[in-house]
Amino acid sequence: ALGIAGGLAGAANAETLEPNAFEDITNYCNYYEFGTGKEDPAKYAGALTTDPWTVQIDGMVDKPGDYSFDDIMSQMDIEERIYRFRCVEAWSMVVPWNGFELADLLDMVGVKPEAKYVAFETALRPEEMPGVRYPVLDWPYVEGLRLDEARHPLTLMATGLYGKPLPNQNGAPLRLVVPWKYGFKSIKSVVRITLTDTQPATAWNKANAGEYGFYSNVNPEVDHPRWSQASERPLGGGLFARRKPTLMFNGYDEVAGLYEGMDLVKNF
């Protein structure tokens, strides 16, 4: 069932969030498995077979196994969440996702007490993904969250957009959405979820550890080494769009408690 726009947290802000057009969201994507151009995913991701789809869930869980997408969907409550989306490249959108809380999926498989992190992996299919011929990144794309981040009620597994099934270029059939982190943390087309007690490797950190940390929380005070993160350009405003200030945690202050006592400059 589709829930209320904005979901729980950040509800006060949700009123003022005007989602970007479907065409904007689906034609300006970073999904390097289909090419590094922003429109490459819209052009080439149609080749990705998303049905059938299986997610392997393993590691420190009570019920490891291969879960079909349909099986997962039958057990999850789908709601709408209108989230800000802030790319590390300093542009932003507002996206009306449909999906379920990652915490619900974790409860479904049962997380063992010794687990501390969640690792994710994107599909790697050279025959369907023209971009993986080039060593832009060390394929497959991998990401990770601390377990408390993964369990936060804002953390979503998105399966739709504007009430439609997720388009391939946006990470069909299911992807992570962590709205207080830079977009690259929100890994697409997930085929594997592993619960572990060691901090998992992440694709961009492997490519350039000085520029992309494990946490990658949106933070206007910590610049990317090559550009400022203090402001962002909201997409959809045309040639004369004004920049606007970037908000700490992308405006999702309720996650601040997760990082209490941590040096966010060091743990960028």
């Binding site: 065409e23 300006y28 922003k38 429109e39 997409l235 040639l239 769009a241």
Partner: peptide
């Protein structure tokens, strides 16, 4: 100016 450069014309 007319949308021919995509979503992020700048």
């Amino acid at each position: 100016l007319t949308g021919g450069l995509g979503v992020e014309p700048i």
